[in-house]
Write a protein that binds this DNA or RNA. Sequence first.
DNA 1: TTGTAGGCGTTATCAG
DNA 2: CTGATAACGCCTACAA
Lengths: 372, 372
Amino acid sequence: MAPRKKQVADVNNTSPVSMADLARELGVSMTTISRALSDHHSIGPAMKQKVLKLAKKYNYQPNRLASALRKGKSQLLGIVVPYIEGRFFPSVVHGIETAASKAGYNVIICQSNEDVAQERRNLDILLSAQVAGILVSLSRTTRDFRHFEKVRGRGLPLVFFDRVVEGDNVNAVVLDDQEGGYLSTRHLIAQGCRRIAHLAGPQHLNIYRNRRQGYLDALREAGLPEDESLILYSDMAQDQAAEGLHQLLATARPPDGVFAAGDYAALGALQEAQRQGLRVPEDVAISGFSNETFTTITQPPITTVDQRCEEMGQASVRLLLDLIEADGRPFTPRQVALRPELLVRQSTAYSADTQGRSVRDPALKFVGDVAP
Amino acid sequence: MAPRKKQVADVNNTSPVSMADLARELGVSMTTISRALSDHHSIGPAMKQKVLKLAKKYNYQPNRLASALRKGKSQLLGIVVPYIEGRFFPSVVHGIETAASKAGYNVIICQSNEDVAQERRNLDILLSAQVAGILVSLSRTTRDFRHFEKVRGRGLPLVFFDRVVEGDNVNAVVLDDQEGGYLSTRHLIAQGCRRIAHLAGPQHLNIYRNRRQGYLDALREAGLPEDESLILYSDMAQDQAAEGLHQLLATARPPDGVFAAGDYAALGALQEAQRQGLRVPEDVAISGFSNETFTTITQPPITTVDQRCEEMGQASVRLLLDLIEADGRPFTPRQVALRPELLVRQSTAYSADTQGRSVRDPALKFVGDVAP
DNA sequence: TTGTAGGCGTTATCAG
DNA sequence: CTGATAACGCCTACAA
């Protein structure tokens, strides 16, 4: 019963077993082992069984470092995000990891903390880790994109998501924010609203620019006037929104609907309306954007636009894998715009389900979506 | 101006430059290059400069795979979490990634999806990726812990966090839930509550068991009776909590305070109380657990316990790094219990700050914390 | 069907 | 202070 000891003083440490060890034990060459394990065609079934059995017995784990070094490609994907917090990025990362692991890849994750310098460093790290591809959502402070040229120069597959480099020579996955703004506003109009205010975000960010444009599209389509006095620009904070709505409600012709470009702004508006004694949605309907968790638990729950976080992750991985499989052969860059989903809740619709009911109208203009 | 082309048909791909390339260019040996780059002491400053300059010029990136293969240790840490969603795990991962990258490590992240089999596979993957250490939060379905023996057998540093294997021979970082329950209840008592109900979670989960115990501790300390009829067990869902409070309020002696073991339960209780026309906190004070985002935006904002997610990530990494540095030398396993933070808001305190004010009472029993 | 041998890029051990 | 050489574990022509 005495445990055999190979080395002195090494109580417990099982040193990892390599192919060479297995080969020695079976009296065959490493080639045979390698082939048996990778299910190569030119290997006898008997031999294969023997090898697999021994591998199991010794709990053989392939050394992916060695394999990757030899093949020049690892099974790792790199992710660079501004941060892993809030609702959006974690969900996208969740989608990415799920899709990646399904395809046999693992992800190594880096945060830029909204700092270009850190973003650059992250890219360098991922390059030297020999990842098979990189997924990036830009930091807020990124104005210069030269560091990405390094990646392309290496011929390394690169996909942007959400915060992307604009242009048609990059691979990118985004939410169609304009469609989101359009859907929300169209819905408010359908609910009978005729004076719809827009709580808009900073217009140097394309997401807010696009949401505003969707809002205008819907107004125009319905023949409603564009009224700049109904558009309030802010940083989308709850109190700014409340203050803004406060002012609008004090005017001669207050709005009967509010499309906020963010859920916190919608919340601020909701609370302000209620403070003023207004009923929501009867006196003023309010909708938000992002499907933050809290939108389901306010009274009434807030109508909002879901950003398809997980799908964004999936779509990004799909695109990246296509790029990886293309393996340097010419590949026409793709820009994917995910179709947002309007979740109608009681802040805009009297009869809406608390959980939010997805509005899918086949007559809506089709903007783009991932391939089925 | 014609671009020099090394290879035909290779338009743009800069193949990564290796130490050998630099050595050839400078007419020195690879050894010299390696030493210059790793700042070895026995290298001439002149030589070092030359090498560094050339490395910069050619944009040399060390191949971490090769380095790790040679050294038998990578600069990667593995994380296994049930999933990356909600508030808790993303924040912990955020803390982990931040601490790890500060120490020169990168993280590769895996989700078990609450599935033991997946958890096992994840461990295998991390082992074969030759990570330097592993951080694990157990899946709900994990009852058998043998797969972790493989990791220990390899002598690979292993730290559990939040959902941990119990016992004093593992390294683990948890929140002191008992202390959290104690702090909350003690606070309710200090606010004048004398009949405090507890919305408890499933008692097979240690977090809920511990929160309940803390509740009992505080009652006992204050000389208040333990009344099992005031403890309601459920899965902590919003509607269950509402229903539960509904029943309690209908009794002859309704509670004047509620300590809910989760924020959703607290929310359900708050809404139910308000439906019954009760004022919160005047008629009944309510506190929750977890510091979910929505607790700041309810009316009134809900007093809750912050779980120190980021600190948990940091502490886990610190412990793991200590383990890595011990490098196989005997290491007495450590269990770290993070001190929770009570955030007092208006649902329990008339005068509380909306944002929540941290209660730090030096007289509180000290349970444990990370080293400074 | 199996074996031999060389190399992926780095580092550690020697010897000068 | 510098260089030659041998690994690390795996893969893959090429040869048998």
